[in-house]
Write a protein that binds this DNA or RNA. Structure first.
Lengths: 377, 377
DNA sequence: TTGAATTGTGCACACGTTTGCACAATTTGG
DNA sequence: CCAAATTGTGCAAACGTGTGCACAATTCAA
């Protein structure tokens, strides 16, 4: 009945103090065998269990053996195989981080913050690119394969079918500045409503009557959200005809969107004078085109306000008045969310505050419609 | 002799067609059990081996069973556990990517390219931040724990002790635009020599006699390399006194370094007129300070050339003449290097070409020393 | 009709770790 | 001096997958 040798081995009488640690064959192969806990166990004259326990805080291990084991480990350059550990403990230090590339400057800052925040928590992000929706679904599947502790999404939204299959199950998903048709997901957003309100107020307070909102037509949740809140804030004044609002969408993204929007809009004789751009990056494009292509002075001819407060916004070339959202706060919120993910099953719903940063791109509108220079003043 | 039940079980007579697939207990626990190959095996009425083989191309599996297994897998949302697979096959799709944050704009573009290139190869980058040297060593250890296929380093250089312990062993390291005191590592660099030569030529050709090189004093390999080659190229002319070269280091990084350098240098009465900045980002800072703080006109008062060719360099605000290095080519070289990593043991040594991009920041130097305005012209 | 070649599938073990349980050795309390 | 408590360590099983080997079933050749 018993055929293979292995059985015989297993059933053999236990030897004294050595558990089966098959000598790692140092054959002629170029790629040398990895060092395992068995190797250090053999050298230290202990079992693999003991080695394992030496790396845990609360284990009952004598100071003596622990010291010896740690010493030998270091000497051998032994590093725990986290893959094996994860298999055993069913826990993972890996976190999925999916972003739509690093083209958008705010995304870059956000990802940067996330990476260093996660790193401080002892977590390691696998970074995946997801430029389109199907790509995002694929990415989620891939991350599931790595048994990640959590998935942080900073672009796009997972299709609900994928959501049903994976997210529902056991991988918590955190949507950052994203729409949340997936109510199983954790949601963290900056306060787009407050931001849009502040922007509207800033332009109105400066005396602008003809306003415009500029956005990329490929823009996702944030842009649309800001537009809607902007419109909503102005509703009272637009309904009386006191103020006009032009909503401009351009088939480009970021800087180029702003650039094109300026070319298109500022060539109209009676164009708006107060511009709210969905992002700072759009504002940069808008300003460059306004200045260098359309010969406008900012803020004398047109006023501009952005959203994000990128480092570039503070530089003298732009000196852009904008709504600041703090990537550090967003990252912190993600950290908190991940922290309490295994303890509670309730979903996070968090809004991060924003603030108005006044710089030099907003002033009162020109007296006369552009084209006819004013005589007074 | 045989004491535990387990032995009895192992030695028991094999049942008909069902191998031991302990029913995943669907207990009251919130976190539902992961779906494993055993689950789909049971539902498909096959063994786990068969399920495993259904996901491999060349396995001898009947079309019928494969179809059925794949169907059930999909239906169940089964995803291979890559950690377990890696343990078994001793191969990994994970690649370590270590960068010193995403503050430097060229690093961002490079990382972006690397991520999408790796993703196309079916590899997944674990992104680690390594701002300082010890941090880098820690990062390498961490990555070793994850059994990564390779480590790509875009900042700093691993200490040679770590190199000896890990890199030597079996994790191939790729140093990107880095110094290589580690000769076990694979080296990929852009052609700093050619770049510095082109920059020198461009300034000399425009008629400049008083040159300067601007760099951050924290700058690593690339900056130092460019400075040395710049100096070397000019050696003949500086030795005759025909041309002067001032080497400026500032205790800041990137934009701020350039900004400060301009404040310091351009306040001198007889300052240089042709500036080679180690990076475009430094050039931006330099130009902003020169224009807005020192009241200089570019290129009329001072000429500037950068290195990298960032997207921002092409925009009208800067319109910077620069040396272009192509991040895409660097990424491609990394891909090639990784591709042949298991087949050959020889190290990669690759230089990526650069080119001069002429824009609007270089012209002839002003006739008279700045300060005394020229009467003619 | 029989023996050989081919095809499809299961079994058992391996990968490197963690951990409940058992147990020997030591210390403690009475 | 003995029982009980404590301490330190080893054993074996588990995590989920891949794969060499064995073997049954089928096809093919003679």
């Amino acid at each position: 009945m018993i055929t293979t040798q292995a059985y015989a081995h297993v059933c053999a009488k236990p030897k004294k103090h050595v558990d089966k640690t098959p000598m790692t064959k140092s054959g002629p192969g170029i790629k040398t065998q990895n060092i395992t806990s068995a190797d250090v166990a053999r050298l230290a004259g202990v079992s693999r269990s003991t080695v394992s326990r030496c790396f845990k805080k609360d284990s009952r291990i004598s100071d003596n053996t622990r010291k010896r084991v740690l010493e030998i480990s270091d000497q051998l350059g032994y590093q725990v195989n986290k893959l094996a550990r994860s298999m055993s403990t069913k826990e993972s230090d890996l976190v999925g981080l999916v972003s739509s590339g690093l083209h958008d400057p705010f995304a870059v800052i956000l990802v940067d913050q996330l990476i260093s925040t996660l790193q401080k928590m002892g977590l390691h992000p696998i970074l995946l690119d997801a430029s389109n929706e199907t790509q995002l679904d694929i990415s989620i599947k891939k991350l599931a394969q790595y048994q990640v502790k959590s998935i942080v999404i900073t672009s796009g939204s997972p299709s609900s079918s994928i959501g049903a299959k994976f997210i529902n199950r056991d991988i918590p998903v955190i949507l950052l500045n994203r729409a949340g048709q997936l109510d199983q997901a954790n949601l963290i957003n900056c306060d787009n409503q407050k931001g849009a309100m502040l922007a509207a107020q800033a332009l109105i307070d400066a005396g602008h009557k003809k306003l415009a909102f500029i956005n990329s037509s490929f823009s996702t949740f944030s842009g649309v959200s800001r537009r809607d809140f902007f419109e909503q804030t102005l509703a009272l004044k637009t309904s009386t005809g006191d103020v006009t609002l032009e909503k401009i969408n351009v088939d480009e993204t970021g800087y180029e969107a702003g650039f094109k929007a300026a070319l298109k809009t500022l060539s109209q004789p009676d164009h708006p004078t107060g511009f709210f751009c969905a992002t700072d990056n759009i504002a940069f494009g808008f300003m460059d085109a306004a200045r260098y292509e359309m010969g406008k002075k900012i803020p004398d001819d047109v006023s501009v306000i952005g959203f994000d407060d990128l480092p570039l916004s503070a530089r003298p070339t732009y000196d852009l008045t904008t709504i600041k959202q703090c990537p550090n706060d967003l990252a912190k919120a993600v950290a908190e969310c991940i922290d309490k993910i295994d303890s509670t099953s309730e979903r996070t719903r968090k809004i991060i505050p924003v603030s108005l940063i006044k710089r030099k791109t907003i002033t009162a509108p020109p007296q006369e419609p552009s084209g006819k220079p004013s005589l007074k003043d």
